[in-house]
Design a binder for these strands. Structure first.
Lengths: 142, 142
DNA sequence: AAGTACTTGCAACTCTTTTGCAGTCCGGGT
DNA sequence: ACCCGGACTGCAAAAGAGTTGCAAGTACTT
């Protein structure tokens, strides 16, 4: 099976290939992303990392999240007017964000198929379903 | 036909009904929203208003946009990591925003139908198609 | 073991939006 | 027509999220 440590080392190997380094901050950040595979803000992640290494600065979290996003390791999801959230890219899915209570629900990538087709047909536009949250009202808040 | 002035007066009438007042700033803001029915940021709108009334403060634009949004007169659209954009709510449509060049394209509300159905079936979630932009790559930037 | 370039911590800053407050002005009542 | 209360505005200041410059630190190559 694939343990958290495996995942971390695989990603670090990829980082090394690009001329990057395996630093404690990176290990801890990846650990935090794996631990709680839910949608966490940069600040959530900083808190998790700082529980084990208090000197790691929020700036470092942001810089590493940017890199990981560029490498395709994490997805950054923009929730309507609020901090961005991050999660491992492994599971491709979309997001529904309640405008009222802030709850986030996942929705399979296939749900975006017909939207993707229409966008492509009309404008030659390729959507990125994982990178944003669809706002609306959840069942409880309607 | 419906002239810009007509629209402005209809909206102002609704504002008065709620105990609100018809101020020059409101008239100018509505005018700016009508003039260029495209997606404008609060700053764009402030600039347009200030061309005729330089003393109108950005704060006032924000406060009025909030009110107009609550009244359902304008839609606020969140583009991934960037300022929110506003437009008259009259025409209901979705948005595609290029992650690379920032271009915004419109897409008919019907394109969201199957997504809306899936969200409702899976989570009882009612999406608000007008309130966000779907990120991706436009034809030129792929 | 040493050098180099990638990383980090820190502080200061940017951008967007919100809030507090005191003065201004709209419009219903007289 | 005039007055008054509450709605609205301008200004300054702050808050939230993320970015940047720079010097010091450190992982990896040789």
């Amino acid at each position: 099976m694939t343990t958290p440590t495996d995942i971390i080392e695989v990603v670090l190997a990829r980082i090394r290939q690009r001329g990057g380094r395996a630093t404690p901050a990176r290990r801890l950040l990846l650990g935090a992303l794996i631990d709680s595979a839910r949608h966490q803000t940069a600040e959530d992640l900083a808190e998790a990392v700082q529980a084990r290494a208090p000197e790691v600065h929020l700036t470092t979290i942001y810089r590493n999240l940017d890199d990981l996003e560029q490498m395709g390791v994490v997805d950054r999801t923009y929730v309507s007017h609020g901090p961005a959230t991050y999660h491992l890219a492994s599971t491709s899915h979309g997001h529904l964000a309640c405008e009222h209570c802030g709850a986030i629900a996942d929705i399979p990538a296939e749900a975006f198929l017909s939207l993707a087709e229409t966008a492509m047909a009309l404008h030659g536009f390729a959507i990125s379903p994982g990178h944003f949250a669809v706002p609306g009202r959840c069942a409880n808040c309607q």
